[in-house]
């Protein structure tokens, strides 16, 4: 699954060509375990914590984190999924369509929301997600967990929990799957 920051993707699409594996499946598992512990530590437990995965890359990570939190603390945290297509600031500039229906199973008022995405890049997806969350109620706090922070931020956004900091060029692409993380390039199909 390619990361969702598509601003560098050619308008008519491209093919992801892998160049180097950055993390394997085991590395990914260890990073998820560590982030889960950090979430528990930061929030002094899991009272009122809700995980919200961003469509599409953040959703499987959110469910894996929820499993991990159940194993560590014995608490079954609520998991939601959020698609930010309608909140993006580049609507009309390039094709923007929701990947899936948003599902937030609990009222967010007074809860601590941990937003989860696979790759943090410009920060624009997270900006859109913060606006979307506000429409579901006033969360007590919002934290951000990402598997890969690849830099190149265009907005003042900083993750609370990071799997791996990965310096990249702007035109590179990062692909996160359950089998690991790969760095590569997008080759236009045309």
């Amino acid at each position: 699954m390619a990361e969702r920051e598509r601003s560098l993707t050619p308008p008519l699409g491209g093919v992801f060509v892998a160049r180097a594996q950055v993390m394997d499946g085991e590395d990914l598992r260890r990073a998820i375990t560590r982030i889960a512990h950090e979430i528990v530590e930061r929030n002094h437990g899991l009272d009122n914590v809700v995980l919200v995965g961003l469509q599409t890359g953040g959703v499987p990570l959110a469910y894996r984190l929820a499993e991990e939190l159940l194993a560590i603390e014995g608490v079954d945290v609520a998991v939601g999924t959020l698609d930010v297509a309608f909140y993006r600031d580049d609507i009309g500039l390039r094709p923007v369509l929701p990947e899936a229906v948003t599902e937030v199973p609990v009222d967010l008022a007074g809860r601590t929301v941990v937003l989860i995405d696979d790759v943090l890049f410009t920060g624009r997806t997270v900006r859109a997600a913060l606006n979307a969350l506000a429409d579901y109620g006033r969360a007590k706090a919002v934290q951000l967990a990402v598997m890969i922070d690849r830099g190149h931020r265009e907005l003042p956004i900083r993750p609370d929990f990071v799997g791996k900091n990965l310096p990249t060029r702007r035109d590179e692409m990062v692909d996160v799957t359950p089998d690991g993380v790969t760095l590569g390039d997008v080759v236009p199909t045309k």
């Binding site: 297509a85 309608f86 909140y87 609507i91 229906v101 948003t102 429409d135 579901y136 109620g137």
Partner: peptide, 20 residues
């Protein structure tokens, strides 16, 4: 397919999105 997403939006406390 897109309508599914807007049906979900209509069920929110704030049934409005800034898309347009």
């Amino acid at each position: 397919k897109l309508t599914d997403s807007f049906v979900e939006v209509s069920q929110r406390d704030i049934a409005r999105v800034p898309a347009l």
